[in-house]
Nucleic acid binder design. Structure first.
Lengths: 110, 110
DNA sequence: CTATTCTACAACCAAATGGTTGTAGATAAG
DNA sequence: CTTATCTACAACCATTTGGTTGTAGAATAG
């Protein structure tokens, strides 16, 4: 899947995926260890189906992938989404720095 | 939570705020130029009230502030929110690197 | 003063979100 | 084979979201 160019809908899904504490926690877990969907579900005070939905949201945002192993579905972190989110925030940061420089210039020449 | 030393609700609001193309565009605009709420509204194919709500979402997420000037309300970028979002994604990135090192160690000693 | 502009906010609506329970199919375990 | 486990998915519900229109007040312009 080529996901270099980000459209609005991709970014919407990406940040939406981060906008929930349970999902952020799932991302942390699957980055550091190996979890099936039910393995994840055991850690949260909600139904299996609810966790399943959270994983689906992360999957659509390209933050995790699933891989079938026997009767389990192993959830793995997928770095692509994270990197794209970081890139966007870095872009905002760059705009900020540009602005700061511009202001500094104005002050310097004023 | 290991990664998440920031308040969950704050982070929810922060990423939720980024999860909309109009709001991301507003952030860009107010970082590079000076805009009133109605000045912003002129650029979007939606009502003034809708833009007003988007600005309110950004305000609650600490991504912008408003300052009254005459009968206008000037919207200004506020760096705090952006920096907190970046910090969180950097933390995830750090976890990734840790994991990569761990795997490299295992491979090296295996 | 009067008219216009800018903002705030309420009320409303459709769609999305985050949760639930229930059903059913695969796979593993006894 | 039978039972338990893991997953998928549908149906449902309450709340939130993203939009609308309408009303009202404050500040500016003429």
């Amino acid at each position: 899947m080529v996901v270099d160019k980000l459209n609005d809908a991709d970014l919407d899904r990406l940040f939406q995926a981060f906008a929930d504490a349970t999902r952020r926690d799932i991302v942390t877990r699957v980055t550091t260890g190996e979890y099936s969907v039910s393995g994840l579900a055991r850690h949260y005070a909600m139904s299996f189906a609810a966790v399943q939905k959270h994983v689906a949201v992360l999957e659509r945002a390209s933050l995790v992938t699933k891989e079938k192993r026997g009767r389990e579905q192993i959830v793995r972190a997928h770095r692509g989404g994270l990197q794209r989110a970081r890139r966007l925030l870095d872009a905002y940061e760059a705009i900020w720095r540009q602005r700061a420089e511009r202001i500094a210039d104005i002050l310097a020449q004023g």
